[in-house]
Design a protein around this nucleic acid. Sequence first.
DNA 1: GCCCGACGCTGAACCGGATAAGTACCGAGA
DNA 2: TCTCGGTACTTATCCGGTTCAGCGTCGGGC
Lengths: 339, 339
Amino acid sequence: MRRPTIADIARQAGVSKGAVSYALNGQPGVSEATRARILAIADEIGWQPNSAARALNGARAEAVGLALCRPARFLGMEPFFMELISGIESELANHSCALMLQVVRDHETEMAVYRRWWGEGRVDGAILIDLHVDDPRVPEMQALGMPVVVIGHPSSAGSLVPVWSDDGAAIRETVEYLAALGHRRVSRVAGLPRLVHTVIRDRAFEDVCAEIGITESVTVHTDYTGEEGARATRRLLSSSRRPTAIVYDNDIMAVAGLSVAQEMRLNVPSDLSIVAWDDSPLSQVVRPPLTALTRDIPAYGAHAAQRLLTLIDGTETGPLEDQAARLTPRGSTAPPPES
Amino acid sequence: MRRPTIADIARQAGVSKGAVSYALNGQPGVSEATRARILAIADEIGWQPNSAARALNGARAEAVGLALCRPARFLGMEPFFMELISGIESELANHSCALMLQVVRDHETEMAVYRRWWGEGRVDGAILIDLHVDDPRVPEMQALGMPVVVIGHPSSAGSLVPVWSDDGAAIRETVEYLAALGHRRVSRVAGLPRLVHTVIRDRAFEDVCAEIGITESVTVHTDYTGEEGARATRRLLSSSRRPTAIVYDNDIMAVAGLSVAQEMRLNVPSDLSIVAWDDSPLSQVVRPPLTALTRDIPAYGAHAAQRLLTLIDGTETGPLEDQAARLTPRGSTAPPPES
DNA sequence: GCCCGACGCTGAACCGGATAAGTACCGAGA
DNA sequence: TCTCGGTACTTATCCGGTTCAGCGTCGGGC
């Protein structure tokens, strides 16, 4: 059962391939009667344009690529990625554009995949995520000449188009809120230290703490997993001058940290305040529900996709600053215990 | 800066296009010396095969399709999907096969996307998931003639290849365990009633309860969200003869149910036992950690991908029964309170 | 010395569409 | 009546690979 081609339609309609092509693409060159006849036949035999043949004539691939360099098990755990992907998807779907997804082992493989996709004409552009400091992917992408949107801070995006949100402002809001509650010993359980956004948050945290007189501020780096979040929390809470508040770089670690606190017979929030970065259902479902830095992640992804589609269209675009995460106070934050 | 083609290589090497093609594909027909020269030139000018041109000659698209018909917000919440996708990905990656992902609004759109992908030659096969009772997608897929693997029970897969696990056995193990602990009033907060696997679980639950003398067994259907899980739990726990154990169809609802129980001043597990279906980090992170039906979801996805790749290869394959979910007892189950 | 076969390569057709160029036909205006 | 212009097509070519038939050359066996 071969797939029907325009040649089949042409034969049935008794016209040439060219006429069929004009008819199917709404081009002038055929009469309305013939066009209708051709369309009817095409519909009847279930014809679909072969994208390969179209691509061969310089058409778009109508797909964008996303190669994710994270171990599979982390992906399943982090709502962030799935929400981001849904957001990207929702925008792409509006333009009948598909998403080519591949989970890769490392950044070399990631770049190899992008090079292949681009070289093979399978994608029209790509989205780059989780930038490292001095990330080699940026210059390589620039050299490829492929339309690329970077989800991350402009300072690291080179000449690629960045879509970003101001993590520094979010950290500032959080720390100022905790300070207003009376906290003076605030710790932070951060993500991978190589990631650009971790560095930005690190610096902002330091700066704000110094500025408003929180002298005891410790930052511990982890790999974003619940296990490391728990371990970091245990260490922080075991120290002689333990923090009265901890800010976590994702919700998984915040929830794990909450468990550790309860395990150590500390009451949250009266003994320890907890703030989570990113506000998945997870944060709201635990007791007490977590004060969290909320952002609309699907919208974030959608904006990136939007920018990419514009770029693919050939229009020059600049950076896009998305709304910064905003603090949603819930039951996990309160004034510190009186010492 | 046009992408280099084999014609460019041929010109530089002073041979014909055909010779270049043989050389690049490891086919006999050129001497080793010429082959080496051609490969060197190809490498030097950064040649990549154009997949469109290859596909035109009947080659594979080297991609499989997955159109997910769930609202974006559910996707981000359910670890199941992301883990499944990672599993699928991990297997596909081994074969340098990409995943075309699209989130769609409804099943009509889903089928339209599959038809388009298949008709356009963009995918070599697809994975079907979340089958309904009498799902129209099954006969439509059969009519398309596309290689398809169904993640779901063989009874609903028609002539498509099913990859499934025995949910009935898992339910049986759970109910028998609860009965052995002494429970006689067991409820179930189930998923969407139209889904085949919900129906299967429903029936198994009823059968086992009848068999071992649990006369008070109630099943409530939800949409898998935490909100509906909480609402269902509230209703069950408010009834005059409230259950001493509740089995949830996913972990999100189980965690939400746990919160409701605690909110109503019921102790878990001494007043109420809770079992979650699917064992994400979520289940282990709450207090008490949830007794859960554990399965290796990434492996499940990987097996489905494996079967699909075999199918695409033209080899006939039969159904694959994956390991059934197994009960992992944790702190959320205990004997019921003495009445 | 001749023939056959293998090797190494060339040339051309082909995949399924898009598209530029060419052609037949028809009606209107000079 | 002849020409001009537009319509409604056809024909041919192209995209970038794959593949097959064909062809010259060289070496070995008889």
